[in-house]
Design a protein around this nucleic acid. Structure first.
Length: 575
RNA sequence: GCGCCCGUAGCUCAGUCGGAUAGAGCAUCGGAUUCCUAAUCCGGAGGCCACAGGUUCGAAUCCUGUCGGGCGCACCA
C-alpha cells in the first residue's frame, strides 16, 4: 500500500465520521476524491480535494466543509499540521520522519518496492509485435515491441495477470508470396541461375538459407512440380523459419511472448465460422453490398455482395466484410474470431498497433464489443513511427530492395538497453526521432545516459567507501536535511507513478519519472562540489556517510526498479 | 468528401481522474568553475496551452465548431 492510498483510507474514515455526525449526507460518491502530493511542496506533503468535490452534493460550501474535514484529520497521529487553502484544498503536513521511514520501506521491499495489487484478479492479454512472418524485424516493428513488452511488465508489477501474445499472420496472400519466393531460392540452392528476383516477390537475402534448407529436405522433386504440390508445405516451412528469425530478433531485445497464435490454425479450427454463426444468429452479420468509397473511386470497383459485420451499430462508419468474394476470410473476419478467442481466456485485452492501422481500430473495437456483449475492456494502443537519423540526417529506407535497417543492426550498434529506454522516452502516440549519435551521447540531454549515470554514481559510493576504509554504522535518518528529504519524497512517489502509469497504460511515464529522479539526485550530489560537508562521503563522519549512503542506495533501488519495468539493466559503472 | 491522431516556450517534448502561480531538456542571456564527487554547475528571460463558444466551484485536460498538420479510407495484411 502506498502512502497515498493509506491516507486515502484515513480520509475515508474521516468522512465516515462526518457522516455519522450528520455533517455530511450518506451515500455521496467519493470517486473523484484524490489524495496526492501538491504541485508546490510549500503546500505540504499531501493534499486532498475532498471538500471541493463533496461540497455541492452535500449542499454546503467548500471552505466550511474543508474545515470540518480538517478537524477530523488533525486527530491522526502522523499528521503534524492541516491547512485549508485556496478554493477548499486541504493540505496536510506530516510528521518529519514519515519520508525518512519510507527509505526503510524501500530497503525492506527492495525489488518489490512499488509493486501494487491494484490490478489483482484481473487478467490482461496484451498482443504486440505481430509482425508478418515474411522477413526479419526492422525498426518499424521495434517501438511497438518495446512499448508492448514494457506495458506487459508494468501491468504485471501493478498486480495484473498478463499474457503476452503474438498473432502470426500465416494465412493470407503474403505468405503465399513468401512461399513462392522461397521456392525460387530453393531452385537457386539446387544450382539454377534465378537472375533478378521478379517484382512482387521478397528479394531479401534472408531467404537464401531457407532455400538451402528446402533443397536439403526435398531434393529436386519440386523444382518443376506445379505450385499446388509444394505451396502449402513450403509455406509452413518458410513461415516457421521466419518465426525462428523473428523470435531471435525479439530475444535481442529481451522479449519473449507466452503465446504465438496462428491465424492458419485459427481458420483450420473453424473459429471464424463459429464467430460468423454466432453473429448471424444475432443479426450482426448479413449479406449486403457496400457503397463505393467516397472521394477517389478505384477504377476496378464493382458492387459485390459480401457477408458484412454490422460494425456501424457499434460506432464504425461502415459495415465491414468478413469474407472476400472468393469465399476466403478477410483479415478482419479472422481477426474478429481471434479477438473472441482471446476474450475467452482474459478479462481485458490490449492490442499494440502501428499508427498506419489507425483506420481499422473502430471495426475491431466494434467486433469485440459485439462478441463480448460489451463486457470486455479492450484498448488499442497506436504506436507512431520512428524516424531514424544518423548525424541529424534521416536514413533512407527502401523496402523494395530489401534495404531496410533491421532491428538486429540497431541493437548491435547501440545495445538493447539504449534501444529500449529510448523507445519509451516519448508518449506512444507521438512521433519520435531516433538519432544513432544522440542516444549514446554522454550528456545531460540524453535521458538514457543521465539515469544510468545517477545509478552508477550511487554504485561508485560503495567502491569509494571501501577504498577509503570507512567503517559503516547504522544510519541516523534524523540527520537528513531538507533538500535530501525532497529527493526522498520524489523517490517515494514511485509506487503511485507505477499505479498511474499502469492505469493509463502508459509505460513512458516511468522513463520520465526516472529522468526527474535522476536529475534531483544529481542536483543533490552537485551541492557537494562546492561544499565538501555536503558530499555523500564525509570520511571524518562515518555515521553521516552511512546515512547518506543508505539514502542514496534506496534512490538507486528505485532507479533499478523503474529500469527493470522498462527491461533495462542498471549500470554499475559507465565507461 | 468521410474517419482517426495531433496542435503546449524559438526547437524537442512532459503535464496524474478536471485542481492551486502550466513544467523539463536544448538553444539563448547572466554568473560560477580548470575542480576529478569526472564526463560541468547555478540562475534569468521566454506562454492567448492553435482559435471561438460551451459544461463547472475550477479547463491545457471534457463537449461543439473553425483553422492548421499527419495518417487512413471497398473483398491488403
Amino acid at each position: 500500500m502506498t502512502l497515498y492510498t493509506r491516507f486515502r483510507k484515513q480520509l475515508d474514515a474521516a468522512l465516515d465520521a462526518l457522516v455519522a455526525a450528520g455533517t455530511l449526507p450518506e451515500g455521496l460518491a467519493r470517486g473523484a476524491v484524490t489524495v496526492e502530493p501538491p504541485r508546490d511542496p510549500a503546500h505540504g506533503d499531501l493534499a486532498t480535494n475532498a471538500a471541493m468535490v463533496l461540497a455541492k452534493p452535500a449542499a454546503t460550501n467548500p471552505r466550511a466543509l474543508a474545515e470540518a474535514i480538517a478537524e477530523q484529520l488533525r486527530l491522526i497521529d502522523e499528521v503534524a499540521k492541516v491547512d485549508v487553502a485556496g478554493p477548499g484544498f486541504i493540505n496536510l503536513r506530516l510528521v518529519p520522519n514519515i519520508w525518512s521511514d519510507e527509505l526503510r520501506t524501500i530497503a525492506e521491499e527492495g525489488g518489490d518496492y512499488g509493486r501494487s495489487d491494484a490490478g489483482a484478479g484481473v487478467s490482461v492479454n496484451i498482443e504486440y509485435v505481430s509482425a508478418n512472418p515474411t522477413g526479419p524485424m526492422h525498426m518499424g516493428h521495434c517501438r511497438g515491441a518495446v512499448v508492448g513488452d514494457a506495458l506487459a511488465d508494468l501491468l504485471e508489477f501493478a498486480g495484473n495477470t498478463v499474457t503476452r501474445e503474438y498473432y502470426v499472420n500465416d494465412a493470407g496472400g503474403q505468405v503465399d508470396t513468401l512461399a513462392r519466393s522461397a521456392h525460387l531460392r530453393y531452385r537457386e540452392a539446387l544450382g539454377e541461375d534465378i537472375g533478378e528476383i521478379p517484382e512482387g516477390l521478397y528479394p531479401g537475402d534472408y531467404l537464401i538459407p531457407v532455400g538451402t534448407l528446402l533443397a536439403e529436405t526435398y531434393g529436386d522433386r519440386f523444382v518443376a512440380a506445379p505450385e499446388a504440390d509444394w505451396l502449402a508445405e513450403f509455406r509452413t516451412r518458410t513461415v516457421a523459419a521466419m518465426m525462428d528469425m523473428i523470435r531471435a530478433d525479439l530475444a535481442l531485445l529481451g522479449i519473449r511472448h507466452d503465446v504465438f497464435a496462428s491465424e492458419a490454425e485459427l481458420q483450420a479450427a473453424g473459429k471464424p465460422d463459429d464467430a460468423e454463426a454466432w453473429l448471424r444468429a444475432r443479426d450482426l452479420v448479413y449479406d449486403g453490398v457496400l457503397e463505393a468509397p467516397k472521394g477517389e473511386t478505384p477504377d476496378d470497383w464493382e458492387p459485390v455482395e459480401l457477408p458484412l459485420f454490422r460494425s456501424t451499430r457499434f460506432g464504425d462508419d461502415q459495415d465491414r466484410p468478413i469474407k472476400k468474394s472468393n469465399g476466403s476470410w478477410t483479415y478482419f473476419g479472422a481477426d474478429l474470431a481471434y479477438h473472441y478467442q482471446k476474450a475467452q481466456s482474459s478479462d481485458e485485452l490490449i492490442d499494440i498497433w502501428g499508427a498506419d492501422h489507425a483506420g481499422t481500430v473502430k471495426r475491431i473495437k466494434a467486433a469485440v464489443a459485439a462478441l463480448t456483449e460489451e463486457k470486455t475492456r479492450f484498448d488499442v494502443k497506436l504506436v507512431q513511427m520512428v524516424r531514424l537519423l544518423r548525424a541529424g540526417e534521416p536514413i533512407k529506407m527502401s523496402k523494395r530492395s530489401g534495404n531496410f535497417v533491421t532491428l538486429a543492426d540497431v541493437v548491435g550498434e547501440v545495445g538493447k538497453d539504449v534501444v529500449r529506454f529510448t523507445m519509451l522516452t516519448r508518449k506512444a502516440d507521438a512521433q519520435m526521432d531516433f538519432d544513432f549519435a544522440k542516444v549514446v551521447e554522454a550528456s545531460r540531454d540524453n535521458p538514457v545516459w543521465y539515469v544510468q549515470y545517477a545509478h552508477a554514481r550511487i554504485a561508485s559510493l560503495h567502491r569509494k567507501i571501501a577504498e577509503l576504509g570507512i567503517a559503516l554504522t547504522a544510519p541516523d535518518l534524523s540527520r537528513l536535511v531538507e533538500d535530501e528529504l525532497a529527493v526522498v519524497r520524489l523517490a517515494a512517489q514511485f509506487p503511485r507513478i507505477v499505479e498511474a502509469a499502469a492505469a493509463a497504460r502508459e509505460p513512458h511515464r516511468i522513463a520520465f519519472y526516472l529522468g526527474d529522479l535522476a536529475a534531483a539526485f544529481h542536483a543533490l550530489w552537485n551541492v557537494g562540489n562546492d561544499d565538501p560537508a555536503r558530499r555523500m562521503i564525509v570520511a571524518a563522519d562515518p555515521m553521516l556517510t552511512s546515512t547518506r549512503l543508505f539514502m542514496a542506495d534506496q534512490i538507486g533501488q528505485v532507479i533499478r526498479n523503474g529500469l527493470a519495468l522498462m527491461g533495462v539493466e542498471a549500470a554499475e559503472e559507465l565507461n
